[in-house]
Structures are given as structure tokens and as C-alpha cells.
């Protein structure tokens, strides 16, 4: 295992752990305001202090992790769920009009600046976590379609696919039985990368107020709220910022490490 993989797994694992624990238990309620305890420094009761509404920062970060990871996870799910079948279909019909339609559709989505369109979608349909998920998810579709098609194309020339055709199997069945398991490693690596991009996108949407709405906690909105106090209470901006950086960096390192581990050609060089 490479150092990149270890560090990535540690950082990403921390974020997932925080979100997982946050699902069932938080040290303090993040929805109630307690002005008497606003902007406290670190103490035993509040290890990272409290924010401008007197809410516990540890609880806020955990609840924010919950939101970020949930949004990114579902967005990656949408991207894979729609993109991978489209990519497999394009590869199965390579060179035909279906391939052409799917790939040009991909190009069309790629041609739009993703975050601007996400802002447009949330602005039109109203700001909410669900709309943020949809907006991010749609832009994941062409990425997974490309990766799936690119990985599938060389496999279609192999003899075991020819043998399956001789055994009377149709393209759909061959895609599921022979192609998909052999491109799974590519997809897993891409999913980790898209996951980190999803967290970034969620933070950006929340920052401009188009993501999860109060009282749902979100790293992006914590940043936005802290903006006016950046000189007096810098820790309120630094802490969610660090959480975003650590999680995104961790997922990218994890993706790189996974790619090296799953690709036998790279593995041989590393060891």
C-alpha cells in the first residue's frame, strides 16, 4: 500500500466516520440558538468552541460532514447509475448511431460550465439539498459514460467476448457479465474522484446559499456565515475550510492509491 493510499484512507475515513456518527448522535443540538454562549474559545465542554449563534463547532462540523457526504454520495450514485449503462451501451454499439447520440449528448453536457448550470438549476427550482444533488449528479453522468465506454472498447475486441457471442449471448448480457466486472476498477477510482468533486460542489452551492437550507448544517454555509467575522473570529472560517480541504485531499489521494493498487502494470513499477 502506498503512502498516498494510507493518508487518503485516513482523511476520507475521518470524514465518513464523523458523518456516520453524526447520523445517530451529535454532542449538541445544531438547530437551537444560545446567544449567551456565542463565539466561545475551546473548552472541555466545547473542544473547538462555539459559533456566532452559540452552537457547538464539533457538532456543526459533524452535521456538515453528514450533509456533504450524503449529497456527494447520491450525486455519484446518479452519475454512475445513468452514466455507466450509457457508456456500456455506447461501447456495445460502437461506431453506430446510438454511440454517436450518446457521446454527442455527453459532449453537450460537458460544454456547459457545471457549477454555473448547477446554480441555474437551484435558482429555477428553488435552493434545497435535493436540487443540489440533482444538479451535481447530472454533471457526473458524462464522466462515468466516458470512463465506461473507454474501458469497455478494448474489451470488446478480446476473444472471450467473441466466445460469448459465439455462445449466443446478446450485447446487453455480454456487457453485464464480461465488460462491467472488468472495468469495475476504473469506475471505483473515478467514483472516488467524483465524490471529492461532489463535496466541493456542494460546499460551493451552499456557500452562495443554493445548497442545503437552514437549519441543516453545511460546511459551505458555515464558511459563508463566518465571512463577516473573518477578522474577529477567524477560527469559524478556518475549521469548515480545513474540513473541506482534508476530505477532498483525502479522497483524491485515496483515488490515486486505489488506481495504483488496482492497475497491475503500475503496481509492478511501484514495488
Amino acid at each position: 500500500m502506498s503512502w498516498a493510499f494510507r493518508i487518503g484512507a485516513l482523511l476520507a475515513g475521518l470524514a465518513v466516520l464523523a458523518a456516520g456518527v453524526g447520523l445517530v448522535w451529535l454532542p449538541y443540538d445544531t438547530a437551537s440558538v444560545n446567544i449567551a454562549e456565542r463565539t466561545l474559545g475551546p473548552s472541555l465542554a466545547h473542544p473547538l468552541g462555539t459559533d456566532h449563534f452559540g452552537r457547538d463547532m464539533v457538532s456543526m462540523l459533524m452535521a456538515g460532514a453528514r450533509t456533504s457526504i450524503a449529497v456527494a454520495l447520491v450525486a455519484v450514485g446518479i452519475g454512475m447509475g445513468a452514466g455507466v449503462p450509457l457508456g456500456l451501451l455506447a461501447a456495445a454499439r460502437r461506431g453506430g448511431w446510438v454511440d454517436e447520440v450518446v457521446m454527442r449528448g455527453n459532449d453537450l453536457i460537458f460544454a456547459f460550465p457545471s457549477l454555473v448550470i448547477a446554480i441555474l438549476i437551484t435558482a429555477v427550482f428553488g435552493p434545497s439539498a435535493v436540487n443540489a444533488i440533482l444538479a451535481i449528479g447530472i454533471f457526473n453522468i458524462p464522466v462515468f459514460a466516458r470512463v465506461a465506454r473507454g474501458g469497455a472498447l478494448p474489451l470488446w475486441t478480446l476473444d472471450y467476448v467473441m466466445a460469448a457471442r459465439v455462445a449466443g449471448k446478446n450485447a446487453g448480457r455480454i456487457s453485464v457479465e464480461h465488460i462491467l466486472p472488468n472495468i469495475a476498477n476504473l469506475l471505483i477510482v473515478q467514483a472516488t474522484i467524483q465524490f471529492s468533486l461532489g463535496i466541493l460542489a456542494e460546499a460551493a452551492l451552499s456557500y452562495v446559499g443554493l445548497g442545503a437550507q437552514p437549519p441543516t448544517a453545511s460546511w459551505g454555509r458555515m464558511l459563508a456565515d463566518a465571512q463577516t467575522m473573518i477578522y474577529t473570529e477567524p477560527q469559524l472560517a478556518i475549521l469548515p475550510g480545513l474540513a473541506i480541504v482534508a476530505t477532498v485531499l483525502g479522497l483524491n489521494l485515496l483515488g490515486d492509491g486505489l488506481r495504483d493498487m488496482l492497475d497491475p502494470r503500475l503496481r509492478r513499477v511501484r514495488m
Binding site: 476473444d159 472471450y160 467473441m162 466466445a163 457479465e177
Partner: peptide
């Protein structure tokens, strides 16, 4: 009717 191919390494799904 069935067939045997040339490449002993590409003839089977490795998984």
C-alpha cells in the same frame, strides 16, 4: 458449431 481462438491469454474473462 463452435470455435477456439488464437490467444490463450485473451480467451477467458479473467474474473
Amino acid at each position: 458449431i463452435s470455435v477456439v481462438f488464437q490467444d490463450p491469454y485473451g480467451s477467458f474473462n479473467p474474473r
